[in-house]
């Protein structure tokens, strides 16, 4: 076995301290990124991709109709009025669909918000592609103004046959005070 010191006790200590330091680093450089990668790849937790999807095949599967439900929630303390323009859409897999969510900042001061999506059943998350979404970026809004926020998505043709309804839920967070605004969008 590798020897780092001719003093056997010191040798053991150096190896163990190294192990401990590596395990500490492991949390930051392996566990966190790995978790994000796995969630993205497998759609665990109903997480959808944080990047815009570039449509590959255009073929629309007219034989199936999927119900998409939209849900909007404000996180605790978030005063915005926030909701979907339609709560239900019927779509075909492969087709590109558009809708908008509306938001209004009722306070007299400018605010910044971030919407965090979640898809249910979580198995469907990997098949729910957003080509454009207000959740990719933070949403600044002046005081007492309203806005419409676009969402464009495609349901994958490979969506498992037993999934007939997909619920897309957004939670709106107030991130006005978040330091640096370094926010990874989802």
């Amino acid at each position: 076995m590798l020897r780092v010191s001719s003093n056997p006790v010191l040798d053991t200590v150096v190896k163990l301290v190294t192990t401990a330091v590596l395990m500490f680093a492991f949390v930051f450089v392996v566990m966190v990124p790995l978790y994000d990668v796995l969630c993205d790849a497998l759609g665990i937790n109903g997480k959808t991709s944080g990047q815009a999807y570039t449509a590959v095949q255009a073929g629309v599967d007219e034989s199936r109709t999927i119900t998409i439900q939209f849900v909007a929630t404000n996180n605790e303390g978030m005063p915005w009025e926030f909701g979907p323009s339609v709560t239900r859409m019927l779509v075909h897999p492969g087709a590109s669909n558009d809708t908008v969510f509306h938001a209004r900042n009722p306070l007299p001061r400018p605010m910044v918000a971030q919407a965090i999506p979640s898809v249910s059943p979580s198995r469907a998350a990997a098949y729910f592609h957003k080509t454009e979404c207000f959740c990719f970026n933070q949403q600044p809004l002046d005081g007492e103004t309203a806005t419409e926020m676009p969402l464009q998505f495609i349901v994958d043709r490979d969506l498992p046959a037993d999934i007939k309804t997909i619920t897309l839920s957004y939670t709106m967070f107030d991130v006005t005070d978040m330091v640096g605004g370094a926010v990874a969008a989802r």
């Binding site: 978790y35 994000d36 971030q114 965090i116 939670t171 967070f173 107030d174 978040m178 990874a184």
Partner: peptide, 14 residues
């Protein structure tokens, strides 16, 4: 204290 978002959904954490 330092504005990261490891565990905060608002900042992209979980």
């Amino acid at each position: 204290h330092f504005g990261t978002s490891f565990f905060s959904a608002a900042g992209g954490g979980d």
